[in-house]
Design a protein around this nucleic acid. Structure first.
Lengths: 214, 214
DNA sequence: ACACTCGTGTTACCGCTAGTAACACCAAAT
DNA sequence: ATTTGGTGTTACTAGCGGTAACACGAGTGT
């Protein structure tokens, strides 16, 4: 007597939830990441408390919204990484999949990675996009300059140096961030591992027996 | 008649500015990055409008605060990168300098990179630390698993795989972010450059004539 | 037919924030 | 003595996230 009842209700609730998420998606993509709950509710044609009943708080809505996009992205990355091909080809294909995704939907990307940027109104809370990004950019540009000045990279060296500068800085940043949170090893070990990566140990590594190798 | 006058005033204003920045530093390091202007003013022993007279708005204060730390960090990085030593040694030394800095003052690091995290109160504006970081972490962990499963890395392979997973994801992320903003080349070129970096072209590159080489 | 619950929706509010206008004081210059 | 300019305050606005309290409408047990 309650199973059909419950499923009915749950179905309806799920449909509502999806509708709300789609409305939120539209608003976030239009107004930028600091879209207000009021605006999202208005876009969905309802009022605030309903949003809160469905998602708890703003973080819950954000998480639900982010989960859809990240899940989709991760699925396509996994597919590229698992395709039957040689190692370097798969690495390139995976990089390309990621870059194609952020190229195709830059607003989604900015929403996921650089929350506070878009709109004109009073930004509350400190920004990341406006200040941490500049630090990474500066480091990337400076490293690019050093690479270009001192390394002989043949033709196209300037562009290559810039890509490498930003790439290496990003590697350092992400690895450092992860390491700082989990402390999985000593700093010296981390440094050695990263330098090994830059020194080509990835290319030199042999395949594990039984697998096609990364 | 006005030069000494002006310099006096300017000196006084600069001193005040430094005092305010130090107070802001204390509050931000204690309360996390969403420290309120009220709290900062209270810590400095004055009231809000004075802060606004000195820094314009919250972004201005944040920028001034961030500039001090980023300048100091960049200086030490430049020093490590310019030290007289062999290339790999300098790379390791620079990585170590960065990691030592974020290790020594993790609150500063979190302030610069992950603005919204700390406190208990109502977070306004969407977070980055709570959602974008999880995406990067997930990607890093998944890649680490793939690397560990399929590559033969010898002893310590698990740790090495995790470092590489997060490092490579960070490289991809930062390079993609920069590329998306500046569009300095085609996507295919970017992919090829990054793959070349991972394939050891950094280690294989010759020094430029006349320099000690990166 | 009546009350009783329960999900869905609303209005009206709280406490907080960033940011500002208007006023008060005090020192130096005229 | 008076006018200027900088320093400081109180008191306010507008908007945010979040919530309590109330209102309606459908199904149910008696």
């Amino acid at each position: 007597m309650d199973t059909t009842q419950r499923t009915d209700q749950q179905r309806s609730a799920d449909r509502r939830r999806r509708e709300l998420l789609e409305a939120a998606d539209r608003v976030v993509l239009r107004d930028g990441p600091q879209a207000s709950m009021n605006a999202i509710a208005a876009e969905a044609g309802i009022t605030k408390p309903i949003l809160y009943r469905h998602f708890g708080d703003k973080g819950g809505l954000y998480a639900a919204l982010a989960k859809r996009h990240t899940d989709a992205l991760l699925d396509s990355l996994r597919a590229a990484l698992d395709a039957p091909a040689e190692r370097r080809e798969r690495v390139e294909s995976t990089l390309d999949t990621y870059l194609a995704a952020i190229e195709a939907r830059p607003q989604v990307y900015r929403f996921l990675m650089h929350p506070a940027e878009g709109s004109t109104g009073a930004d509350q809370g400190f920004d990341v996009g406006k200040h941490s990004a500049p630090l990474l950019r500066r480091m990337g540009e400076e490293l690019a300059q050093v690479i270009e000045d001192r390394l002989d990279l043949g033709p196209g060296s300037q562009q290559l140096a810039r890509v490498w500068g930003h790439g290496i800085v990003g590697m350092m940043h992400a690895a450092g961030d992860w390491w700082l949170g989990e402390r999985p090893c000593s700093r010296a070990e981390l440094v050695r591992s990263l330098a090994d990566l830059l020194w080509g140990r990835l290319a030199a590594a042999g395949d594990k027996i039984g697998g096609p190798g990364f």
